[in-house]
Amino acid sequence: MVFSTSNTPGALYRVLSIFDKYSINMSKIESRPVKFNPFNYIFFVDIENNKNTENAINEIKKYCRNFKDFGNI
């Protein structure tokens, strides 16, 4: 998945804490700067799906400016 958050203190923490809340393991996280938008980043995250993944994604979307789920394998 890929998402961006607001550039405010704790914004990324709020999203990442949802993975803990739903016992979802992150296998990768990577940040990239947003072109032409200083101090803003997009985050690429790989997770291990479980029965709570759909609920977690729905909650994560509430805290994100942009969100894209690339599906699973």
Rank of each mutant, 00 (worst) to 15 (best):
F3V: 00
F3H: 00
S4V: 00
T5E: 07
S6M: 10
S6Q: 14
N7G: 02
A11W: 09
A11M: 06
Y13D: 15
Y13W: 10
R14E: 15
L16F: 14
L16V: 14
S17N: 13
S17A: 12
F19L: 07
K21V: 03
S23M: 07
N25E: 13
N25P: 06
N25L: 10
M26F: 05
M26N: 10
S27R: 11
K28A: 13
K28T: 06
E30N: 14
K35G: 06
F36D: 15
F36K: 13
F36H: 11
N37T: 02
F39H: 14
N40D: 11
Y41N: 11
I42N: 10
F43W: 05
D46T: 08
E48C: 07
N49L: 13
N50R: 01
K51V: 06
K51P: 05
N52I: 03
T53A: 04
T53L: 06
E54L: 08
I57W: 01
N58I: 03
N58E: 14
N58G: 15
E59C: 02
E59Q: 08
K61G: 03
K61N: 05
Y63V: 01
C64F: 02
R65G: 02
R65H: 07
R65D: 15
N66C: 01
F67C: 01
D69N: 13
G71N: 06
N72Y: 12
N72M: 05
